[in-house]
Design a protein around this nucleic acid. Structure first.
Lengths: 161, 161
DNA sequence: TTGATATCATTTGCATACGAATGAATTTGA
DNA sequence: TCAAATTCATTCGTATGCAAATGATATCAA
């Protein structure tokens, strides 16, 4: 059934079609059931929970500090790969962390293209202080699920990411 | 064990603690296992898939059109509620759709605060043409899961959103 | 009725997020 | 070796996303 040329005056026809579709269920598109839409909402909820516990750092900023704490000094590009940010995004994140004195950057001695990034003592203090809060945020995000459900969810989510 | 006042010169102590932690596994924070980080990556993947199939419309823009197609004319504020966008965000989305002739706005006759939004004929044509592609995107997003896993995942994801 | 509240929309400022273009430096391959 | 391809970082433009402040309008309550 072609709809390409449907004009605005076809309301009656559309209603009839809607009725037909309601019966066979084939043509009703429910945005609220689409994985992308729900994924976006779940992500929004997590970000809001994060902000309510850790107000002065965003999840991407926290991710950068946590990864630097985990692996130590690395290049901006490599850091971006590890925390799933493209070059333009990671630059902005690092710039803001640098402005706040939580990371410091230096030039790579051998490969002059690379910009090395590392925690400052203040950055290390901050991330070590915040990690317990981050654990609590993870718990709270998963709170609507039982422990078994949470494990299942994380396993399946990881397959999609 | 208090870390609040840890300074930058405690590297040796930190390494010893890390060894201890590696043994009992209690204090290692793995960013890549946190639900928020994986959620962000899964969302990124979905947006990328969406862009590869529907290049000239973003997921939020598509959501606005799909919801308007579903419920018909509504206020900008109500639309925002239905597609999970705050007032500032939905305004930008509607402005861009309006500039492209896919929606039109008008003033509410009774309540002069409200801005009514509706599809144009072009907007209706567009969303009806794109819905089949959106179904394919949903399928592709869930492709790493079996049908049973996908059903489980959507059920649990909805609980978190 | 009217003053206090609440709602709707807008604006500003900040922070991701990504595509595309650019330039510098390195690596590869014929 | 050296030209081509690749990598790293930066910049620009566009699009969410949200907090906070503002103005207009509507509703509530004393």
């Amino acid at each position: 059934m072609g709809r390409l040329a449907m004009s605005g005056e076809d309301n009656l026809l559309r209603l009839i079609e809607a009725d037909e579709n309601d019966e066979n269920g084939e043509n009703n598109y429910h945005l609220q059931d689409q994985v992308g839409f729900i994924l976006r909402k779940a992500h929004q909820r997590h970000v809001a929970l994060f902000a309510s516990h850790i107000g002065d750092l965003t999840p991407p900023q926290f991710a950068a500090l946590a990864k630097l704490h985990d692996i130590g000094e690395t290049s901006q590009n490599q850091l971006g790969t590890l925390i799933a940010m493209d070059a333009a995004t990671v630059k902005g994140v690092i710039d803001r962390l640098k402005a706040r004195g939580l990371v410091e950057v230096s030039k790579h001695e051998v490969d002059k293209r690379r910009l090395l990034v590392n925690l400052t003592p203040e950055g290390r203090e901050a991330i070590e202080r915040l990690i317990p809060l981050a654990r609590a945020i993870t718990e709270e995000t998963l709170a609507p699920l039982t422990a078994k459900e949470a494990a299942t969810f994380l396993r399946l989510l990881a397959k999609l990411a």
